[in-house]
Design a protein around this nucleic acid. Structure first.
Length: 477
DNA sequence: CTATGGCACGGATT
DNA sequence: AATCCGTGCCATAG
């Protein structure tokens, strides 16, 4: 036996801490981030190879393995969802040896998926000094999911160690990009920015600016009478301004579908987000098992390049060591990637199973579900679930795009119940009365909590609802 | 006086 | 260990 053969045992690895650490990291990444990581790894590790994808011969879908679960599904119980991996097909540049045959299927896949940050960056890049790029990147990274920038320019400047002026300059660009209103500190400022952009298009309202800028809190309380008095106009005019604001502006400029779907259809914004998983109903059988697609940037399988594996035996003593390191890293990466996919699939299978009602129905059908319970069910550590759930979104059959964490929202169904109680109330109910109503439906929550839910749903307090009602009555007579 | 929102505390969850 | 959430208490507005 030559001493070299000892090195061919590539399978058994000391996969311990490094393995765990990398898997953990990968699990925490969203599909988009994972794609970047994969591209970086492919670019920097010559031993890692992406072999061509497998497609289903019948439907042309990209598959992780045969058989295609859509076309010939093994019969399964109705309550068990079908889970499979699906490549999102946008693997960046490096490896794309396949022909162009897949192009017409491309249309079926999510269109022009682009992260909001990239979208903005592309717009402002021309006007941006090269030195200011890091500032822009930083600011965009700090935007919260609503599109707001919670910190002040001064804070950013201090963190970045650049002058306040430069930050403000870049921020100004961001705030005037599309969609308008991004990068504001709060809703009020955002609305003003949106108003500005509307005015540039020639659409404006005489009172809107004053209402938002100076009488915002009164407007929130629907205290139109007082605003009208201060501005010296009629209540109708103020109400008209409010309508204009509601119709043309959005409180959360980055909001796609989530939230509660109430309000803006904003179909355009949906393109800014790419879900990490897609849950769909089988085409013909509404009661059949759900389909769950977990997106992967891999269109095929990752493996160690066999050419390199073979060459390993022949290369020089000195070089061999570094090649071995590459190979080892490649094996590790592929394994971690596989592990991630496996975990994601099993997680989504469990979620789709548990929350089947919610997926078919609405918010009120959400079952209480904790990450811990799923962790024991899947036999993984609870932090794994936390990571897997974080920063990811799912597209539901009805088009809703929701963060995965929504499946674990303890209070969603109660909040939904509050909504429907208020919607059906004969007269404005106080929080106490709503609490009593809820108790009758089996939800036992404190009055204070009702107030919080109500506020979270954007429902005004009873007194304000009363005023609203009397106002519209007054209009009628 | 009543309804509500702010603050803060403790327990659960991550 | 850090964070989130429900809740109680208290101040305040109407």
């Amino acid at each position: 036996m030559s001493p070299l053969s000892a090195h061919t045992g590539l399978r058994q690895r000391p996969l311990t801490t490094a393995h765990l650490a990398q898997t953990m990291t990968l699990i925490g990444l969203s599909a988009v981030e994972l794609e970047e990581t994969l591209a970086a790894e492919l670019a920097s590790n010559p031993a890692l190879e992406l072999v061509s994808e497998i497609r289903c011969p019948t439907c042309g879908r990209r598959l992780k393995r045969m058989p295609c679960p859509v076309c010939h599904v093994a019969p399964r119980a109705n309550d068990g969802p079908i889970v499979y991996l699906s490549a999102c097909g946008t693997t960046t540049g490096t490896m794309r040896g396949e022909g162009t045959d897949g192009e017409e299927r491309e249309a079926v896949e999510p269109r022009a998926p682009e992260k909001l940050a990239e979208h903005i960056l592309r717009q402002i890049a021309p006007a941006l000094d090269v030195d200011d790029r890091p500032i822009a990147a930083y600011l965009l990274a700090r935007l919260d999911e609503r599109g707001f920038l919670p910190e002040s320019p001064a804070e950013s400047a201090q963190f970045l160690r650049v002058t306040l002026q430069r930050v403000q300059c870049v921020l100004n660009l961001v705030q005037h990009a599309e969609p308008p209103g991004l990068g504001a500190r709060d809703t009020r400022q955002s609305l003003l920015l949106q108003l500005e952009s509307l005015e540039e298009e020639g659409k404006s309202h005489p009172l809107a600016r004053a209402c938002i800028a100076n009488h915002w809190d009164m407007l929130c309380r629907h205290d139109f009478g007082r605003v009208a008095r201060i501005l010296g106009v009629s209540r109708e005019e103020v109400k008209d301004a409010r309508d204009f604001i509601q119709r043309n502006l959005t409180p959360y400029p980055a909001q796609a579908f989530w939230g509660d779907g109430r309000g803006q259809p904003c179909a355009d914004n949906s393109a800014y987000f790419r879900p990490d998983v897609i849950i769909s109903r089988p085409p013909h059988d509404a009661n059949g098992p759900l389909h769950v697609e977990v997106f992967t940037p891999i269109a095929g399988t990752l493996r160690v390049d066999p050419a390199i594996k073979n060459a390993l035996a022949e290369c020089e003593e000195g070089e061999r060591e570094s090649w071995e390191r590459y190979v080892e890293r490649a094996v590790l990466f592929a394994k971690c990637m596989q592990q991630r996919n496996n975990t994601m699939c099993r997680l989504l299978e469990a979620i789709a199973c548990e929350q089947r009602q919610f997926i078919h129905g609405g918010d009120r059908d959400l079952k209480p579900l904790t990450r811990v319970s799923l962790a024991v069910r899947l036999g993984v550590h609870e932090s794994t679930i936390s990571r897997a759930v974080a920063n990811k979104t799912a597209a539901l059959p009805d088009g809703r795009i929701v963060p995965l964490s929504k499946f674990f929202d303890r209070s969603l169904s109660v909040r939904d119940a509050v909504k429907s109680i208020v919607a059906a109330e004969p007269r404005p109910l106080t929080d106490d009365e709503i609490a009593a109503c809820l108790a009758r439906q089996g939800y036992h929550v404190a009055r204070r909590t009702v107030a919080k839910y109500r506020a979270a749903e954007g429902i005004l307090p009873a007194a304000a609802r009363r005023r609203q009602a009397s106002y519209s009555n007054g209009q009628r007579r």
